[in-house]
Design a protein around this nucleic acid. Structure first.
Lengths: 193, 193
DNA sequence: GCGTGCATGTAAAGTGTTACATGATTCG
DNA sequence: CGAATCATGTAACACTTTACATGCACGC
């Protein structure tokens, strides 16, 4: 029997509910918008997980904001379970960096396209950076007295630094690739300006 | 019909074979050791993928270094296919950072454990950093005249910078968490020094 | 009355990991 | 000759995504 890596969906769901009760729909948005910078859960995972957590008594279903909808509330046993899950060793996701994979085979891909990819990555990172900076300001103001604040700021800082890092790296890489003549082993690509 | 995200296993396999021919076993090691810093493929994916590539004429099976073993060689059509795959848009893996997930819920996890996790992450990054620095020196010397060198160095630099970044971030985060009293909402954990 | 957004779920399918199974070769 | 390493594969299963299906409420 293949011993499966523990899924961390439970952790994310219980964690989000530990901040405040919400509907499954809101939970999905919270995971997308709040944890989105370092975590993701697909829609189809959230409902089954909530069902399982309910059966185990870790969350309770209350009257929702609309008829037919339900708000989920974490129970004491749920909080204990969350603590347990958070204390489990981190199961690292296998690395899968599509940009580095392409760059590594840059000789086959062609310098021109490599530069293009680097510029795209840099632009992306710049957008993200602006987002993180705005977010940090907003959260600092809004949640000034929340005990969660330092933890949240820490994760935002990780995102900000990572974006800055990509920008600096892209510049370095562009400089390094600048020395290579553009027709090295370049693909037979008709599209050029 | 769920339109599946393209698997990039083919890309990694063809890419590795584009550097030089090898057996499936060696391929697995190359992917683990050479691409390992930014890519991973499980053993069970490599064989079926090689089989499919062979049926499509993108790789050919030659006499291997031992009886019963075969060395795989990329064909012209395989090189063309690799070029095609490398030019496809990058399918970003959904983010899943277990460390940030735990830190985000640090109030529940407890400051002490958060510090522990940060120190671990920092130590990891320091190990990696040393590895990258050694690797960069080694590759620079060994492959001095390889046309692949600048591309490879670029990916190593990404790893090195990322490790440096984690170290700096961990220090910042540790300082930030330094202000929080250790018994905030701390779990009932018996283990303490 | 109709579109948009809130709300809840299920089903099909693909991706990827791990355990299992087996054998040859080399080296001490 | 036994252990380590090279070598090749398969099968079960977990994980995750995405498409589909359905309905209510609210504003215009």
């Amino acid at each position: 029997m293949p011993m499966a890596r523990r899924s961390q969906t439970e952790t994310a769901v219980l964690g989000a509910l530990s901040m405040h009760p919400m509907t499954a729909y809101a939970l999905r948005e919270a995971i997308r918008d709040v944890l989105g910078h370092f975590w993701s859960e697909s829609f189809g995972q959230i409902y089954p997980t909530l069902g399982a957590l309910e059966r185990q008594g870790h969350v309770e279903r209350r009257e929702g904001p609309r008829s037919g909808s339900s708000t989920f509330v974490i129970t004491d046993s749920g909080t204990a379970r969350l603590r347990e899950l958070l204390n489990e060793p981190i199961t690292a996701a296998p690395p899968r960096n599509g940009l580095l994979l392409r760059l590594f085979f840059g000789r086959t891909l062609g310098v021109r396209k490599c530069r293009e990819l680097l510029l795209e990555a840099k632009a992306d990172a710049e957008r993200n950076l602006a987002g993180y900076e705005g977010l940090a300001r907003k959260i600092s103001a809004e949640e000034k007295d929340s005990p969660d604040l330092p933890y949240v700021l820490t994760t935002i800082s990780a995102g900000r630094r990572s974006a800055e890092n990509v920008i600096a790296w892209a510049d370095e890489a562009l400089a390094l690739l600048g020395d290579i003549p553009a027709d090295d082993t370049t693909p037979t690509n008709g599209e050029s300006s």
